[in-house]
Design a protein around this nucleic acid. Structure first.
Lengths: 170, 170
DNA sequence: CGACTCAGGTTGAGAGTTCAACCACCGGCT
DNA sequence: AGCCGGTGGTTGAACTCTCAACCTGAGTCG
């Protein structure tokens, strides 16, 4: 364990600045959403994803991926949203294991009411604070970080491939 | 509400890249910490802050600010950490309302054990994924976002000042 | 002194998340 | 047909976080 690549002082500073901003910013956004619309950001995200989908409905597993939720989290969340009358579930056709989640009209209305406050918060606290160059770099950074996190899966798959010896799925 | 400054497509893309990276990255880091050290990141952060403080102790309110926690959250968290024997509380001298939180030897040991895995995760998933230029900009971005969020408080204080007419604390 | 306001901190309840089972069904293989 | 590993999804318990209410002590002012 002595071969850990510790952070230099400069790296510490960067890391701290990044982490602090993340925590504070997401706390701010989540708080705004709860206060003004009575739902956590995770729920808003689910409604947004549904609203963008064809027919305003998605399979649970696709919705989970799109809204960055675990299956379990989504399952609980959709149960809560269903209690509000904002979504509804119906069996998927063709696969009797699956379920489709529909955004109801009430759900769409709730989304439409929550959106302005949310967008304004993001606008003021993110876009208004950064230069165009910084925003451009931020996009790249976000993509790079997400890509880096996905490599892990590839690595895991690669191991399986090695074990399976030339599996075509890789 | 029709005067909302909605996001352009390009801004949407930036916002989504940023948010996705944040959510995925912090989920990854938190998961690593829970799995390998049995505590959420918020608790690790508290231990780090204490370990860096003079005498390895801090007033609850200072610890809250340093660890980016609300008072309530910190109170619950310290209760849990105390149950683990990682911190202890004692009355602050000079102010009988206050409490001081000490990092115990066991707490320091737990921190020392958790650190390598955490730093490695941050190194691999953040620093190894970005160029030096991107990292430099990331630092600036983080500082700018945090600064932007603090302005809100200033604005609130300014209002109070206006009401109080030239209060020196402003 | 006595009242009033504010700061430090805790508490309990309710909401949301995580983790580890668990069930049901699909697809392929024998 | 019958088995078997994998996928889709749910569930319950334990844990963490948030919010609002609350308590105590400090500071201020008349």
């Amino acid at each position: 364990m002595s071969d850990v690549r510790w952070l230099t002082d400069a790296e510490q500073e960067t890391w701290r600045a990044y982490m602090t901003a993340n925590v504070e910013f997401s706390a701010y956004i989540d708080r705004q959403m709860r206060r003004d619309s009575g739902m956590p950001m995770a729920y808003y995200e689910i409604l947004v994803r549904l609203s963008e989908a064809d027919g305003r409905c998605l399979r649970m597993s696709e919705l989970a991926k799109a809204s960055l939720s675990s299956r379990s989290r989504l399952s609980h969340a959709v149960a809560a949203l269903e209690k509000n009358g904002w979504v509804s579930r119906r069996p998927a056709d063709g696969d009797r294991r699956g379920w489709v989640c529909d955004l109801t009209d009430a759900g769409f209305a709730a989304l439409a009411e929550a959106a302005p406050g949310h967008v304004t918060a993001v606008r003021e606290k993110l876009f208004d604070q950064l230069t165009p160059e910084q925003l451009d770099t931020l996009r790249e950074i976000g993509l790079a970080i997400s890509a880096g996190l996905r490599k892990e899966c590839e690595a895991a798959q690669a191991e399986e491939c090695a074990a399976a010896e030339e599996d075509a799925a890789c």
